[in-house]
Design a protein around this nucleic acid. Structure first.
Length: 465
RNA sequence: GGCGUCGUGGCCAAGUGGUAAGGCAAGGGUCUGCAAAACCCUCAUUCACGGGUUCAAAUCCCGUCGACGCCUCCA
């Protein structure tokens, strides 16, 4: 039985879908105006793992991830670059999609955008006004009235009275209540805008997600996700809008990932302590980023530094060791040794599922993978044949795949590989001649080419990296 | 100040009432010309601190201290 921690109730609850075997999951995407960073990668990977696991458990998953392509920051940046805002955002949408692909994040089932959801957004706002949950203000903006929603604050656990005390923002006088938030913003001179019953303007940040949810998944969804920095105000406001509009409970489960920490602080655009996904991937593999996430708890802060990354890299290498074939001289495993291997295949699978079932305990799931690694490697050392190893390796690969790990070795060009093979042939001869000096020279040379070699009774194997 | 998450060995970290998973690092060993990898062994009488409940607590309750996030755009 899968259990999920639900931010809404602050409890771990049994997972039950609205419709049998179907999961409707909406995850807040990014605002596209510059390069995405590894904090975004963490979030994307967390929900990719959740999606992959739900599918592994037999659910069909409708996974929606939006792109915010209409926004103040996009407009400002477009102005700086003297570029059309929608062209700018289109560029970064393509860019982010490419980042996700290189991180081995499965594409969402759909990726709605604000700019193409405009009629529904306007219809949504009109509905809220009709139901007296929103009002058109004197300045041309439309605001959501927080006092019209009795439940306002239930996700973040805040009370309107508490919030006013700490509010430092200058309150727009057009608002009835200081916490009222914009559903529609009147266009300033020269800004990109859309026609609406309230004049030219564009949507506020929160309404887009309510509208896109409705368009893509309907009035009620199973899972709504995002970073925990979105709990307030974004998700709080989304709930308010959607539930006031439909009169129904919006999302059953709310899942929030913790923040990636760089030097003890959250990595964020406004703090400027950013490492972009591209920058990361130029130095380390996507598996390393993913392993970093897997080693931690998705809800907790994730430490991103050389130590944690080095450990993640070692973990990935260790996992890969299980995929090596039997040694050439393998003579087969004795019956009792084989039954040990085979029973580990079963128990590891069970442990994996139990870990993932308890609120996506990926660290526990990885531990189950390491059980398999040890069993496979021990079996290989004891002479297991490929026929004996492969069924276990197949399970291992499948489970690693559920976590989205590729476990691929780096590849070089065929010319480079030919060169490496030639050097290794020469070294093999040198070793036969017991010319250790030459043999070690070649090893050093290969190392400089980025090749690691391993000698065994059956010959020399090598890999990039 | 308010809301929330959390504090487990040198590091990352699992574990929510029955006596501390896993990985990294470290030390010893097997194998090897050496190295690397793999394998074997060692590595927390103890879970921020102080009280309490219980036959029994890292796990429940109260308090203290500390960290992080949110309260303003943010994954």
């Amino acid at each position: 039985m899968l259990k999920i921690y639900n931010t809404l109730t602050r409890k771990t609850e049994e997972f039950q879908t609205l419709e049998p075997n179907l999961v409707k999951m909406y995850v807040c995407g990014v605002t596209v105006y510059n390069d995405a960073h590894v904090g975004h990668a963490m979030s994307a990977i967390v929900f990719d793992i959740i999606r992959r696991y739900l599918e592994y458990r037999g659910y069909k998953v409708k996974h929606v991830m939006n792109y915010t392509d209409v926004d103040d920051k996009i407009i400002n940046r477009a102005k700086q670059l003297n570029e059309d805002p929608l062209k700018l955002s289109a560029r970064y949408i393509a860019d982010y999609a490419a980042d996700l692909k290189s991180l081995n994040v499965l594409p969402a089932t759909s990726n709605p955008q604000v700019s193409t959801t405009m009629p529904l957004i306007i219809q949504f706002i009109e509905g809220l006004i009709q139901k007296r949950h929103a009002y058109a203000a004197s300045n041309g903006d439309v605001y959501f009235s927080v006092t019209s929603d009795d439940d306002y604050g239930r996700l973040s656990g805040r009370k309107l009275d508490d919030m006013q005390a700490g509010a430092r923002i200058e309150v727009d006088e057009a608002k009835t209540h200081p916490m009222d938030f914009a559903l529609w913003k009147a266009a300033k001179e020269g800004e990109i805008s859309w026609d609406s019953p309230w004049g030219k303007g564009r949507p506020g940040w929160h309404i887009e997600c309510s509208a896109m949810n409705l368009a893509e998944l309907g009035e009620q969804i199973d899972i709504h996700g995002g970073g925990n920095d979105l709990i307030f105000p974004h998700h709080e406001n989304e709930i308010a809008q959607s539930e006031c509009y439909t009169g129904k409970d919006f999302s059953h489960y709310w899942i929030h990932n913790g923040m990636l920490q760089l030097g003890g602080e959250k990595m964020s655009k406004s703090l400027g302590n950013i490492i972009s996904i591209k920058e990361f991937l130029s130095k380390r593999s996507s598996d390393i980023m993913r392993m970093l996430v897997l080693n931690g708890t998705y809800r907790a802060p994730l430490l991103f530094n050389d130590d944690t990354l080095d450990a993640a890299e070692k973990n990935v290498e260790r996992l890969k060791s299980a995929l090596k074939p039997a040694s050439a001289s393998a003579s087969g495993l004795a019956t009792d040794a084989f039954s040990v291997l085979d029973s580990t295949r079963v128990t590891a699978q069970t442990n994996f599922t139990e870990a993932m079932d308890s609120d996506f305990n990926t660290a526990g799931a990885v531990a189950a993978l390491f059980e398999l690694v040890k069993a496979i490697n021990t079996a290989r050392d004891n002479g297991a044949t490929n026929a004996q190893l492969e069924p276990v390796q197949k399970v291992f690969r499948e489970l690693a795949g559920v976590l989205g790990l590729k476990l691929e070795d780096k590849k070089g060009s065929s010319e480079d590989e030919a060169q490496v093979e030639a050097l290794i042939a020469e070294r093999t001869q040198a070793r036969k001649d017991k010319n250790w000096k030459r043999s070690d020279e070649i090893r050093d040379q290969l190392k400089e080419l980025g090749v690691t070699i391993e000698d065994s009774k059956d010959g020399t194997t090598w890999k990039w990296g």
